Simulated scan of single mutants.
Amino acid sequence: MSTSAAPSPQTGAQLLRALERTGPRPALAWYGEAARIELSGHVLANWVIKSIGHLHDEIDLAPGDEVVLDLPAHWKRLALALASWALGAAVTVLEREAEPADGIPPGPKQPRVVITDRPDSPLADAADEVLALDAVSLAPRYSAELPPLAHDWLAEVRGSSDRLGVSLPAWSGPAAQPGAPAASDPSAPPRLLVDGDGLGALPPVLAALLGGGGIVGPAAVVTERQALEEGVTARG
Rank of each mutant, 00 (worst) to 15 (best):
L149H: 11
A132H: 01
E156H: 04
R158S: 14
D128K: 02
S160W: 13
K109L: 07
Y142H: 10
R112P: 00
V157L: 10
G159Q: 06
L94D: 09
D120Y: 09
S143N: 09
A144F: 15
P108S: 02
P111C: 12
A101K: 10
L131N: 01
E156N: 03
P147L: 05
T92D: 15
P106I: 04
S143M: 08
P106A: 11
L123F: 08
V130T: 01
L164E: 15
V130I: 02
D152W: 01
L164V: 10
S121D: 13
I104F: 00
L146D: 03
P106Y: 08
I104L: 03
P106K: 06
A155H: 00
P147A: 08
S137A: 15
P111A: 02
E97I: 11
G107R: 02
R96D: 15
I115D: 01
D152V: 03
P111V: 03
I115Q: 03
A144K: 14
K109R: 15
E95K: 11
V113R: 00
P100K: 02
Q110H: 10
R163I: 06
E95R: 13
A144D: 13
K109S: 03
L164C: 06
T116D: 02
A124G: 05
G107T: 12
D134S: 13
A135W: 01
E95V: 15
T116E: 07
P119R: 06
R158P: 03
A127S: 02
L94A: 08
W153D: 00
G103A: 11
D120S: 06
L133Q: 06
V136F: 12
S143K: 07
Q110S: 11
D117I: 11
V136E: 07
L123C: 15
P111Y: 09
